[in-house]
Simulated scan of single mutants.
Amino acid sequence: MNLDDPRARRTRAALHAALRELAAERELSDVTMSAVAARAGVNRATLYQHYRDLDALLTDAMEDTVAVVARAAALCPLDAPPDVAPAPLVDLFAHVADRAVLYRRVLGPQGSARCAARLRDRLAAELAARFATGARPPRVAEVPVDVHAAWLAGALLGLLDHWLAADRPAPPAGIALATWRLLRT
């Protein structure tokens, strides 16, 4: 299958949207491939041509997470003051807050451990690629790029899970500032 084909891209986009909608309505354990196919308006055979299982579809549908987190990491100015969260970090938490139910279901205890691990690994790879260009604080220069990327990916996903699990999560600007202060230590 040619993933650059406009029909394949439309089908994948429909499958992503269907899965995100279903995950916002019910626990991931209650979402089936049949339900995703029906919601997307495609048959199951078409769905299986694109994804081998729900975890693979979920990981691909959550790819925007990787892009948003990597963008925030890449765009955060290294010399920003400790008392003001950089705008990309605030944008990251606002993005997650807007999709809180979905993120809670993916990252939480009832979520998909395989999907969370794949997201962490993809995020670490994206961060490592960005860090390899030298976009890192000087104080971590002696830390290998892959170690820094793995640490940051795990820390951010763990923090998102913790933040979303709270009964009354801090507003995005508040958690962004706390995160920024931690990142600067």
Results as ranks from 00 to 15, higher is better:
4 D>Y: 13
81 P>M: 09
49 Q>W: 15
46 T>H: 02
172 P>L: 01
113 A>V: 11
168 R>C: 13
31 V>S: 07
26 R>V: 11
83 D>V: 01
80 A>V: 02
101 V>G: 08
66 V>H: 02
161 D>V: 04
176 A>T: 03
45 A>R: 14
26 R>L: 09
94 A>N: 13
2 N>T: 10
56 A>F: 02
113 A>E: 15
182 L>G: 11
110 Q>S: 14
104 R>F: 05
102 L>D: 00
67 A>I: 11
80 A>T: 00
141 A>P: 01
148 H>S: 13
69 V>M: 02
84 V>Y: 10
81 P>Y: 09
63 E>C: 10
2 N>D: 15
137 P>D: 14
84 V>H: 11
50 H>K: 05
54 L>R: 07
112 S>P: 03
183 L>I: 04
150 A>I: 05
161 D>I: 07
128 A>S: 06
173 A>L: 08
151 W>V: 11
87 A>R: 07
90 V>Y: 03
133 T>G: 11
10 R>N: 10
65 T>G: 03
137 P>L: 07
185 T>E: 13
109 P>A: 15
59 T>C: 07
14 A>T: 02
91 D>T: 07
173 A>H: 10
71 R>W: 13
124 A>M: 03
88 P>S: 07
41 G>N: 08
152 L>P: 06
50 H>S: 01
182 L>P: 06
174 G>Q: 11
111 G>L: 04
78 L>R: 12
6 P>D: 09
100 A>R: 01
85 A>G: 00
11 T>S: 01
50 H>D: 08
26 R>D: 13
76 C>H: 01
18 A>S: 00
91 D>S: 10
17 A>H: 01
185 T>C: 14
118 R>W: 11
145 V>F: 06
130 R>C: 07
70 A>N: 07
133 T>I: 09
144 P>H: 08
117 A>D: 15
156 L>F: 08
76 C>E: 03
22 L>M: 05
3 L>P: 10
19 L>M: 08
25 E>M: 02
182 L>T: 13
145 V>P: 02
115 C>P: 02
